[in-house]
């Protein structure tokens, strides 16, 4: 998550000062970790340094003096470039289940037994999540988050099933390496 681009995005609707940006960020991304004030100000200073934002003016509105910032033309172009840029889909495969299977093969362990046990644990968790979302009175957010987790666990399971089927070949390849 690029804080500088998110702040640029918030500035797109008009000049804003740091406190206001922090408040709007936390409103727009309620499930995200709240932004620290310090991070907002540091990021704004960097945006100014890089020519992506500039000072719009200062005012106090009767309170402490605040500096308002606005996006520059270059900042607007940069925001547009970033928002349309494809996020690399899973650039690094660093899953613990995958790692355990490979290590197990390398060390002469029993990856098939591990996969069966892991599969049972996954199914157990899927049953729990299914019970949670099937419970009377489960709200939409609960159902959606359970669905999200269930689909990811299901993806793991599919990979584990395929891996079980491939294990013979896989073992031969690792042995040869």
């Amino acid at each position: 998550m690029s804080t500088r681009h998110v702040l640029l995005g918030l500035l797109a609707s008009g000049p804003s000062h740091g406190y206001d940006l922090k408040r709007r960020h936390d409103e727009q991304f309620p499930e995200a970790r709240p932004l620290a004030y310090g991070q907002v100000y540091t990021t704004l200073q960097r945006l100014v340094r890089d020519g992506l934002a500039e000072v719009d003016g200062t005012g106090s509105d009767g309170g402490p003096e605040r500096t308002a910032y606005r996006a520059t033309e270059e900042g607007t172009r940069e925001l547009s470039r970033w928002a349309g840029e494809i996020t690399p889909p899973a650039p690094f495969v660093t899953n613990e289940i995958f790692a355990k299977v490979v290590v197990s093969i390398l060390s002469g362990g029993d990856p098939a037994a591990y996969l069966r046990a892991q599969r049972a644990a996954h199914m157990g968790r899927m049953r729990e999540l299914t019970a949670v979302k099937s419970a009377a009175g489960a709200g939409l957010a609960t159902v959606l988050s359970a669905d999200y987790a269930l689909n990811h666990l299901d993806a793991d399971l599919r990979w584990m099933t395929t891996t079980e089927d491939r294990l013979t070949t896989l073992t031969a390849e690792v042995d040869a390496a």
Binding site: M126, R127, T130
Partner: peptide, 11 residues
């Protein structure tokens, strides 16, 4: 389908 099987008590 594992997501369907998750409605069961056992597998």
């Amino acid at each position: 389908d594992a997501r369907v099987a998750a409605y069961a008590d056992r597998e």
